[in-house]
Structures are given as structure tokens and as C-alpha cells.
């Protein structure tokens, strides 16, 4: 198994764990954590392809892409957690299956 395939398979497993958590857990905070795991797996793929992809001309592209991806992930987490805290103030719960109506 080539080094690239090893990293791709680890990233796929990490993505799957995050997806399983995001699909099954009831707590909204853990669903957000699962989404973070999936984003991290994507970053791992970016770096693995940058290292082993064989494009020596653009030496920094993969790294810069991951830096921007990390910034977007940070923004997403900040807004998502603010939303969860705001919903908690109204409904006194973070269980996703209790948020079943549009009226506040």
C-alpha cells in the first residue's frame, strides 16, 4: 500500500466516524463536533495530496488551501455554537429532536 493510500484511508475512516456522530447523536454540540471531524479529514486529504500528488510547480497551493479551510471551519464553529446557545436560552435544551417547531 503506497503512503498516499494509507493517509487517504485514515482520512476516510475519520470522515466516517464524524459522519456517524453527526447523524446519530442527539446533542447539537456533538453534531457540530462531528462536522469538525469531517472537515479535519478533508484537510488531511488536502495535505496528503499536496505531499504525494506530484505537482512540484505549485509548492504552496495545498498548504494555503488548508489554511483557508481551517479559517472557514473556525468561523463555522463560532456561529454554530452561538446559535446553539441562543436556542438553549429559548428552549432550555440542546436535544435536536426537541426542536420540532418553527415558532420560537
Amino acid at each position: 500500500m503506497s503512503p498516499l493510500e494509507r493517509y487517504l484511508i485514515v482520512a476516510a475512516l475519520l470522515f466516517g466516524i464524524g459522519l456517524a456522530g453527526a447523524l446519530t447523536r442527539r446533542n447539537a454540540i456533538l453534531v457540530l463536533a462531528g462536522i469538525e471531524l469531517m472537515l479535519t479529514a478533508a484537510n488531511l486529504n488536502f495535505i496528503a495530496f499536496w505531499r504525494y500528488g506530484g505537482h512540484p510547480a505549485d509548492s504552496g497551493t495545498g498548504i494555503v488551501f488548508v489554511l483557508f479551510s481551517i479559517a472557514v471551519a473556525a468561523a463555522e464553529t463560532a456561529v454554530g455554537l452561538a446559535l446553539i446557545v441562543t436556542i438553549y436560552r429559548h428552549r432550555h435544551s440542546t436535544k435536536l429532536d426537541e426542536f420540532d417547531e418553527l415558532k420560537g
Binding site: A33, R51, V66, L67, I70, A73, L81, V85, Y88
Partner: peptide
């Protein structure tokens, strides 16, 4: 994989900010 800068950015952003934010949200709710 040889990406030192991304590795340290990962520690700064994910461990230093996102995990702490998750702990704060857990305690606030």
C-alpha cells in the same frame, strides 16, 4: 507529511479555539 506550519496552525485553531469553544458551549448549556 512535512507540513509544519499547517500542523501548528491546526493546534492553535482547533485545540486552542474550537475545543475550548465546545467546552464553553457545553458548560453554558
Amino acid at each position: 507529511l512535512g507540513a509544519e506550519f499547517v500542523s501548528f496552525a491546526q493546534v492553535m485553531v482547533y485545540v486552542g479555539a474550537i475545543a475550548i469553544l465546545i467546552v464553553f458551549a457545553t458548560l453554558l448549556t
